[in-house]
Computed example of a mutant assay.
Amino acid sequence: MSQNDYNESKKRKKKKKSLGFKIFIGFLCVVLALAVVGGGYFIGILSKMDNIKLNKDNLGIVEDELKEYNNTSKIKNIALFGVDATDGETGRSDSIMIATLDPVHNKLKLTSIMRDSYVNIDGYGMDKINHAYAYGGPELSIKTINENFGLNIQDFVSVNFSSLPKIINILGGVDIEITNEELKYINKYIDDVNRKDGTNSPHITYAGVQHLDGTQALAYSRIRYTAGGDYKRTERQRTVIDAIFTKLTSASIGSYNSLLNEVLPYVQTNLNAGDILSLGTKALGIGNNLEQDRFPRDGYGEGANIGGIYYLTFDIETAKQQMRDYIFNDVR
């Protein structure tokens, strides 16, 4: 990967940092607000999530590898997956993050893993890390993270990006700037979403700031053939989520109820309501001491064309050591 690519990567990292924090803390605030005012109703709403069981013996945790760290039992790691899948598909994980509750160093951490990272997936060999979700769902994805980076993740939360139209429509739409280049492609994606979801959203006819409904915003987030390719696509997804958060900050608790009713069926996790409330309380107790890192770190990865496919290659042992030092020892 060229130096210019890494410079652009650093710019994207800065944007993603504030966005990741907003999503994580925003979700916790919504959950805790409903817990305070809702009581049993809160438990009922969370039951709408798709709660699944994981085989804890098949998550690739190697305890011996963690002996050099003294705080592993006190620090909680949760895998976060953002999946863009249509009905009947498992989908690949477009976004892979590790949320860390670290009471030892009094920090919340979000660790992102580049989706094109070239790693070993049990039973499938070397491949992009985001393919693990399509091959074996969250269990294989967690196993892949644990085995490659020497971690101890046992829990996850997965959100399907297809839930975005419902969220945005409840909030009354979002304002997003459409470029001339994006205008060339967005209407094709609008037609595609309309056809699949049975909606009838209109085309965008000019560039500039637009007030988008849910279908239009999802179409915008899926554009991938402009300059910047898939990097720009993930940046558009972050732009949409950032716009949603802006709307959420002024929304009423009543609208939170509607949002969770619509969105939670798109959420999959092995955590129950009690687990989520406990984690949320602990996270907010840590406060705004938030950090984010991304692996492989800038300067440690290189793009490679292998068999006609782009991969991000890197030294796995270096990335493993850096990631574990960051998560468990707070060393950057």
Rank of each mutant, 00 (worst) to 15 (best):
G20M: 07
G20S: 09
F21R: 10
F21H: 08
F21M: 07
K22Y: 07
K22R: 09
K22T: 09
K22E: 10
F24T: 13
F24R: 08
I25N: 08
I25G: 00
I25E: 07
G26C: 03
G26F: 00
G26D: 01
G26N: 01
G26M: 01
L28A: 14
L28Y: 09
L28G: 09
L28E: 07
C29S: 10
C29F: 14
V30E: 06
V30W: 03
V30I: 15
V31G: 08
V31H: 04
V31F: 10
V31I: 12
L32W: 10
L32E: 13
L32P: 06
A33I: 11
A33L: 13
L34A: 05
L34C: 08
L34V: 06
A35D: 10
A35F: 08
A35V: 08
V36N: 13
V37L: 08
V37W: 12
V37P: 03
G38T: 01
G38H: 04
G38D: 02
G39S: 11
G39K: 11
G39C: 09
G40M: 13
G40Y: 13
G40A: 13
G40Q: 11
G40N: 13
G40C: 08
G40K: 12
Y41L: 14
Y41F: 15
Y41C: 14
F42Y: 15
F42N: 04
F42L: 05
F42E: 03
F42Q: 03
I43W: 12
I43K: 15
I43N: 13
I43H: 15
I43V: 15
G44F: 11
G44Y: 11
I45D: 00
I45K: 03
I45G: 00
I45T: 06
I45W: 00
I45M: 05
L46R: 00
L46I: 07
S47R: 15
S47V: 09
S47G: 12
S47P: 09
S47N: 15
K48E: 12
K48D: 09
M49L: 01
M49S: 04
M49T: 03
M49N: 02
M49E: 02
M49P: 02
D50N: 14
D50P: 05
D50F: 07
D50Q: 15
D50E: 12
N51T: 13
N51E: 12
N51V: 14
N51G: 06
N51L: 07
N51H: 12
K53R: 09
K53D: 13
L54M: 04
L54E: 04
N55D: 13
K56L: 14
K56A: 14
D57F: 10
D57H: 11
D57T: 13
N58T: 05
N58V: 06
L59A: 08
L59T: 07
L59G: 03
L59Y: 05
G60P: 05
G60V: 05
G60I: 02
V62Y: 14
V62G: 06
V62R: 14
V62A: 14
E63N: 11
D64Y: 00
D64V: 00
D64I: 00
E65N: 08
E65G: 09
E65K: 12
E65W: 03
E65I: 02
E65P: 01
E65H: 06
L66K: 01
K67W: 02
K67Q: 11
K67R: 10
E68C: 03
E68M: 03
E68N: 04
E68F: 00
